[in-house]
Structures are given as structure tokens and as C-alpha cells.
Write a protein that binds this DNA or RNA. Structure first.
Lengths: 369, 369
DNA sequence: CTGAAAGCGCTTACAG
DNA sequence: CTGAAAGCGCTTACAG
């Protein structure tokens, strides 16, 4: 019977054939690797970590040898020794208000992941009930699991920012929280400008009766979109639409469908509508088609498009006229920014505003009559 | 000037006001916690880890104190000491064949995350180019970052299984690889049975001209679906449909749209179609409506439904008649199984076959004429 | 440019 | 039931 944990130093040999879990099974350690290449652990470690004391020739040789022998430093030992985790935390809240797992996550995470692979960072994904986020943040910090966090789907006056500052965890917000007493780092798309431009485009086509099917206005992005919408109307000398022309809700196809039905059945239906997501636009389109109506001809649709990879609104002529902003690119930018913050924790808050591009598709035309 | 890394033991005090990154900033360690509660580190550690030597009263008291004082063991020190990582690895391949980030990921991961939260496991997410997966697996193992892996989107004869067995990393496949020389653990939905039942349902309605818009048949699930389709037809004494009645492709709305157009414009259009995803079904529906046709009345649609939370095919009468199988539940089951494997690495391969339920919606009716 | 050795914060065999 | 101490596999100040 082999001891569960051999204490004494032993030569490099993958040991263990019996049923007990072996800690070292085919996993080379620094000590063995250093011996194999005939150098001290110190030098090997320094070479692999890019320290300047080691000559480039030696470094190259050791990197090659590590690759060949399959040696990679144990990440936990490394993090313990250095005292910091090269890991980005992504906390996904579920339940509560938005039970739906936002499809945006998949693409956003892909962008984050791309950057992490390049910069040799890991991603820790945590799924928590909406109301246990604070607890999750604290645990991530006190367990030393992450070096920083990405805050998703911020709300106006979101309490998470203060919490993160208090517990001393660097973070970047994907979006903005509206008014906030102190500067913080964020990556956002210019939602106000996007909806202002979308509205201007419809105005130029001749539309005067324009409705808005917005996202949940508890979120900052939705408020900015409404503001852009109203600003463009005001600039054209038009009054703010009646409340029943400006809806707000969960960005789903069924909301778009129901919203369109409501708009179409009013006394004085709008000739155009702005929607906050492709899913909403699809719901609107469905409602039109079930009534024998046609997007563009009977009701112009301009939508915000997160450019999710599973729903492509591309092609020679896209289905929808859209304000397009790739969420995957936002993921890349956010990760890049957070890694910068983790590497230099005393740095100032950084912000980045991405612009959406207006792409003309087949869902818009001048109003009839 | 404070030293970068204080070596000597020091009393519990969050130190550091200057700009240098402090490793201990407001992070309590076992030593300090033990002192605070007046016990040895050994006893505290054992209590927190649920060892039987500690009385339940003591354990309860220490757990409460840890919570109150905000103490949580450093995860890296813990993993280094125990020699294993309580972490599930999820490797998402991008690029190559399926550039699209599958929307299924979000819901599946949510299911995995739920279980991880409950079982106190972490999730490590890695995004890699399709052809660098092997490298990623090896790195995850040699860095000791994960205790096991979930293999997503298996293909027939998928080489990843052999690789994982070789490098000694427990894994569970979400889906199956078809023929495989050795047993392996998987969680799958009964795709064959689902499509067999869906086809039977259409046959019972009187349909004889049934088409299939399948997913990519390089994947095992798609082959099983086709087999179920053909089996039901054969059992009804019907011949296998012509190749242009059985399409295979990326599960998107545009594929569904194009497929429907092709089917409808043939000499002898089918009266019903089975589709492999809601996205495909939506594309089919769109093609119908643009032609003034109606799902159910003009073409019956039965679809597989992953029950993704962002697209709900629910309600009193669902839009689509569907074989419904919640992918989030599959995520839960997969994680549960993998954790079991990690905890008992010598265990036998486990498998679990989930059944889809047939839900009747508004997209099916007897054929006209 | 190099190495021996301390230390990171835990867990756990060993000895009471 | 409890504790002192070794060890997990790294990094890095310190001393050449």
C-alpha cells in the first residue's frame, strides 16, 4: 500500500498504479524540470517569467524545453507565491428580475476569453442568484480567486460599484450606472448617439409618428437610448411622443410582438418604430407579417443590433436597418482594460465609448400616404 | 518606504497606505482567524473542512465566526496543500467550422454554475481557437487549474476523449461521440427517440411527405435525429425521403429560411418538416409568412427545442409543436456527474439519457387536401 | 548572471 | 478532541 501523500523527495517517476488518488501523476514539477535542463529552480523560474536577468538565449532554450517536456508551473503555487491571481471574474446573476440568461453573455464572454488567452489570464465564472451577488464578490476576493471583476448589466445607482471599491477589487463595468459620485472604469457603446442617429434617419425618410420599444429602463443603457430618441425629435421640433408610444420591457421576441400589436391597434398607429434589440425587432416583424403587413412598406423598423454571432443581420442587404455594435468587441475591450487595471491597481479610472454604426437594411422606407 | 513583501510575521492589521500593491490588504489569514477565535490553526481548518474529529458545536461556532469576520481560506493555498482543484473546466472552441458562439452555452453554463455554487466548485472558462483545444487541455492539466472538464459539441470520433484519457483528466461529454472503443461518461438527450416521436406525431396527423432540416451531421446528435426520423418512417412503411428532403446545416434562422424556400419551391413540396432547433423553425416560419402561408395550415413544423431562457416557446399554446429538452437541466446533470467523477476518480463511466417531451403547439395540423 | 533558502497560506500525518 | 510542524510547488529578496 502506497502512502496517500509521499513526503520524502523522490526522483521523477510518475509513480502510482494503485487506486489511490496520486497528486503527482504525470505532472512535472519545477524541481524536476530544473534538474532535467541542468539549471537551478531560480534561473528556470526567472527565465519562464521573463525576468531580465536571464539571457534571451537561455530563456528561449528553457521555453522550448518546457514545451517539449510538458512542464508548466502550477498555477496555484504561483498565485500563492506572488500573492495575486491572474484571473478575471465574471459573475452572472440569475433569477430575480431577469430570469433569462442573456444571450449577450455568450458573445461577450467569447471576447473576454480571446483577450485572456492572449494575455495569459484565466476566467472564473460564477453563477449566483441576483440577491447574493455581494456575497459572491466578497467570497471571490477573500478566497483570492480573482484579480478583478467585470460588472455586467449595471443599473442606475447600482450598489455593486461601492461594494467592489470597498472590498478593494479592481473592476470594469460593461455599460454605465448613470450618476455616480466617483469615477469608475467602464466600456460602453454610445447608446444616446445611436438612437439619436436612428431617429434622425427615420425623420429624414419623412416619418413623424415614431414609436420606441425600449429595453428595461431600470438600466442605464435604456435611459440613454430614450434620451437620444427624444433629443432627435426635439431637434426636429417634434413633441415627445405619448407614453403609449414609448414602451419599456424585457428584450424578447414576445415583448416585441405584443408591443407591435399594441402600437398597430391604436387610433393613430406610428409609421416607424425603434427597437432596442434584434429579438424585439423580430417580434415586431412577426406581428406585421401575421397581419399581412410588411416591414419597411407598412412600418419602418430600426433596431439596435448587438451583432450576436448566432443571429446574423448581415449580408448584401441586411434584414433590419440597424445601429450595429459588436458586443464581442466590447468584451475584448473590457478584458483588456481590466487586465490593465489589475496590473496597475493604483491607476486612474479609464473609460471607453464605442460608437455604433448605422447600417441600412430592408426594414425602412418612407412612410406611405 | 515599506518593503514590497514583508517577510516577518506581523499582527493582524490591514497595513499599507502607500501606493505599493500589498498582498494582505484586508484579507484575513488562517493564523489570524485562529488567534481571533482562540483555537489552533489545525482545529479551525478541520472544523471548516467538515472533518469528523471536531464537534458539531465547535464547527457551528467557527463557521459563524468565519462568516462574521469575513474569513475564507485562500483557494490557491488550499489547492496547493490538497493537491487537487475543485474546479470544472469549460473549454469553448471558436473559429473554424462553427464560428458562431452557440447560444446554448449561456443556458448550459447557467446550469453548470448552479451546481458549482451549491457544491462549492469553481468554473474555469477557456476560449480557444478550434485547433488549439488539445493544447488548452494539456495546459489546464499541467497548471493544475481544473479537476475535470466538460466536453461540448462532440463530433463523431472526436479525438478529444482519447486525449483527455491520456492526460488523466476526468471529463463528462455533453452529448455523445458515436462509436467509441471504451466507455466514457456522458449526459445526453435521447435525440433518436425525440425525432422518432416527432415523426410519429406527424404521421398520425396524416402527413406522408415529411422533410428534415437537421443540424450539422458531423455531430452525433444530428445523426441520431436523422436515424429517429428514418426509423419512424420505416415503421410506417414509408421509404426514406430523397436527399433534397433531408438537409443538414448550421442551426441558424437563415439556414431554416433557405431550407424552407428550397423545400417549398420543389415540384412536390412536403406537407410537414422537422427542424433541429427553434432558430431553424423561426427561419422556416418567416419563409412561410413572407409567402402568405401559415405554419400548421400550410406546412406543419415540429422542432427540437432546447428551451433556452431567452426564447420562450411556452404559454397556454406554444408557437411551435416541439420536442422540448431543457439544456439548463442538462448543464446541472453534467456538472453533478463531473463533480462525482472528480471526487472519485477511479469510478466507472456514468451515463445519463434525458428524454425530451413532446409539446403540442400551433405549428402542426393535418395536411390539407 | 546564478543559487540556496525563506516564505506564500493552507492541510494533514503524526504524536499526544 | 487538539496542536506543532512538515509539506504542497512555486517566486524572489538576498548574497554571491
Amino acid at each position: 500500500m502506497v502512502a496517500l501523500r509521499p513526503r520524502c523527495g523522490q526522483a521523477w517517476a510518475p509513480a502510482g498504479v494503485n487506486g489511490i488518488r496520486q497528486r503527482d501523476k504525470d505532472k512535472m514539477k519545477l524541481k524536476e524540470f530544473a534538474k532535467a535542463v541542468g539549471m537551478s529552480q531560480t534561473t528556470v523560474s526567472r527565465a519562464l517569467n521573463g525576468h531580465p536577468e536571464v539571457s534571451e538565449a537561455t530563456r528561449a532554450r528553457l521555453i522550448e524545453a518546457a514545451h517539449r517536456l510538458g512542464y508548466a508551473p502550477n498555477a496555484h503555487a504561483r498565485m500563492l507565491a506572488t500573492g495575486h491571481a491572474s484571473t478575471i471574474g465574471c459573475v452572472i446573476p440569475i433569477g430575480g428580475r431577469n430570469e433569462l440568461v442573456n444571450p449577450i453573455y455568450a458573445d461577450f464572454l467569447a471576447g473576454v476569453g480571446e483577450v485572456c488567452a492572449r494575455r495569459k489570464f484565466e476566467i472564473n465564472l460564477t453563477v449566483v442568484p441576483q440577491d447574493e451577488q455581494a456575497e459572491a464578490y466578497r467570497a471571490l476576493k477573500s478566497k483570492g480567486l480573482v484579480g478583478g471583476l467585470i460588472v455586467q448589466f449595471p443599473r442606475r445607482g447600482d450598489p455593486r460599484l461601492a461594494l467592489l471599491k470597498r472590498i478593494g477589487l479592481p473592476f470594469v463595468v460593461h455599460g454605465r450606472v448613470g450618476d455616480h459620485p466617483e469615477p469608475y472604469s467602464w466600456v460602453d457603446v454610445n447608446n444616446l448617439r445611436a438612437f439619436e442617429r436612428g431617429t434622425q434617419f427615420l425623420l429624414q425618410l419623412g416619418h413623424r409618428q415614431i414609436a420606441l420599444l425600449n429595453g428595461d429602463e431600470a438600466h442605464d443603457f435604456a435611459l440613454r437610448r430614450r434620451e437620444g430618441f427624444l433629443r432627435a425629435l426635439a431637434a426636429a421640433g417634434l413633441p415627445a411622443p405619448a407614453p403609449d408610444r414609448m414602451l419599456s420591457g424585457e428584450m424578447s421576441a414576445s415583448y416585441g410582438y405584443a408591443g407591435a400589436v399594441a402600437l398597430l391597434s391604436s387610433d393613430n398607429p406610428p409609421t416607424a418604430v425603434l427597437t432596442s434589440s434584434i429579438m424585439i425587432a423580430m417580434g415586431v416583424k412577426q406581428a406585421l407579417e401575421e397581419r399581412g403587413l410588411q416591414p419597411g412598406r407598412d412600418l419602418s423598423i430600426v433596431t439596435f443590433d448587438d451583432d450576436l454571432s448566432y443571429y446574423s443581420n448581415r449580408g448584401a442587404v441586411p434584414v433590419f436597418t440597424a445601429m450595429r455594435s459588436p458586443v464581442r468587441e466590447a468584451g475584448r475591450r473590457t478584458a483588456e482594460m481590466l487586465i490593465g487595471l489589475i496590473d496597475a491597481p493604483e491607476g486612474k479610472a479609464v473609460t471607453e465609448l464605442l460608437e455604433a454604426e448605422l447600417v441600412v437594411g430592408r426594414s425602412t422606407a418612407p412612410p406611405r400616404c
